[in-house]
């Protein structure tokens, strides 16, 4: 998979979420809006955290919400949700979460390359703050180094 795109529909900035489930659901809604997944994918992302715990909070303030490939994934995609009020996911070190990245992949084998770009972005420790403080989808795309749509 090439670098994922991030259309405006997959971005929600300064959103309100009462708890971690609501925060993950916002990421699911954004993936659904962009066409990457159907609505049920949000439930599966929540199930992953219910089953395995808050390990998806992979860095201070950042949750990578995701589930396995499935019929509810239409195509690979990412979504970005920033929270107006940080939310606790129950992680011992990395709470509270300010940014939820939603990730949907259609094939487990092919996703490593697309995820590698996230490693590049977040190896810079300031990236999470810059995302949390982004005021527009354009600013989010600039931090992640992605486009709104596939370049011609």
């Amino acid at each position: 998979m090439p670098l994922p795109t991030l259309p405006d529909s997959a971005v929600a900035l300064g959103a309100e979420a009462g708890d971690w489930r609501a925060a993950v659901r916002l990421a699911g809604r954004a993936l659904n809006r962009s066409g990457a997944t159907t609505a049920s994918y949000a439930d599966r992302m929540i199930q992953v955290i219910e089953e395995f715990g808050a390990y998806v909070v992979i860095a201070p303030g950042l949750a990578l919400a995701h589930a396995r490939p499935g019929p509810d994934v239409r195509h690979d995609g990412i979504a970005v949700v920033t929270l107006a009020t940080p939310v606790a996911f129950g992680h011992p070190h990395n709470d509270p979460v300010r940014v939820v990245l939603g990730l949907a992949v259609s094939s487990a084998e092919e996703h490593v390359a697309s995820v590698a770009f996230l490693a590049n972005v977040f190896n810079d420790p300031s990236a999470i703050d810059r995302l949390a403080d982004a005021g527009s989808a354009d600013e989010v795309r600039a931090v992640l180094g992605v486009d709104a749509e596939v370049r011609a």
């Binding site: 395995f52 990578l64 995701h66 992949v105 995820v115 996230l118």
Partner: peptide, 30 residues
């Protein structure tokens, strides 16, 4: 990781970077 996608892939990529920094060679599998 729990689901075997996403987080384990990021961990794999950064473990490979850490190994390179240490000058060590290893096969990292997610």
């Amino acid at each position: 990781c729990g689901a075997g996608i996403g987080t384990s892939a990021i961990l794999k990529v950064n473990a490979e970077r850490a190994l390179a920094r240490l000058g060590l060679e290893a096969d990292v599998t997610a």
